[in-house]
Amino acid sequence: MTVAKLQIATQLWLQLLLLVGIVVAIAYLAICLFLFIQQPRFIFYPSRVIEKTPELFNLPYEEVYLPVRVKSGKVEYIHGWWMQNNQPNAKVLLYLHGNAINVGANIHHANRFYQLGFSVLLIDYRGYGRAQDRFPNEMRVYQDAMIAWNFLVQQQQISASEIFLYGHSLGGAIAIDLAVKFNEAAGLIVESSFTSIREVIAYRNVFRIFPIDLLLTQRFESIKKVAQLKMPVLFIHGTADSAIPSFMSEKLYAAASEPKTLFLVPDAEHNNTATVGDIEYLQTVKAFVEQAHARRLLTTSE
Rank of each mutant, 00 (worst) to 15 (best):
A185T: 15
Q218E: 15
Q39G: 03
S193L: 03
G21V: 01
L96W: 13
V92S: 07
E258K: 10
N102I: 02
G21W: 07
A268C: 10
Q157W: 06
A173V: 02
P136Q: 04
C32K: 10
A131D: 11
A255K: 12
A179I: 03
L19R: 13
D213A: 02
K74P: 03
N271E: 12
I22Q: 10
Y65L: 01
E302K: 13
S72F: 05
I123K: 04
L234N: 04
T273S: 14
Y77R: 11
I78Y: 06
F135Q: 05
Y253I: 00
Y142C: 00
G80Q: 05
F263H: 09
N106I: 01
F235R: 01
E76C: 03
V226W: 07
A240D: 15
L234W: 10
R208G: 04
I26K: 05
Y28F: 12
W81A: 00
F220Q: 11
Q143F: 03
A185E: 09
Y203P: 02
P88R: 08
A274D: 14
D133Y: 13
D213Q: 12
A292Y: 08
N271M: 05
A25D: 10
V276N: 04
P67S: 02
P259R: 07
T2H: 08
A100C: 04
L234Y: 10
G187A: 02
E51Y: 08
A274E: 13
H293W: 15
A287L: 09
A202R: 15
Y114L: 00
H168T: 02
A160C: 01
E199D: 14
P60C: 00
A202S: 14
S249N: 06
V190L: 05
H108A: 09
N205E: 13
F220K: 11
L282I: 10
S257P: 05
E55G: 12
I223K: 12
R48Y: 08
L152R: 13
A186C: 05
G127H: 06
L94N: 10
A287M: 08
K230F: 04
L252A: 04
N271K: 11
L170M: 14
V49H: 14
R198Q: 10
M1A: 09
S72V: 01
W149Q: 04
V265Q: 09
R69V: 01
T53D: 09
A186W: 07
V265S: 05
Y77C: 01
A4C: 03
P60R: 10
A254G: 04
I31M: 12
D241Q: 12
E55L: 03
V265R: 07
L96F: 13
N86Y: 11
L29M: 08
V3S: 12
L229H: 08
L116C: 05
P259A: 00
V206C: 01
Y45M: 03
K225C: 00
G172A: 06
R69N: 04
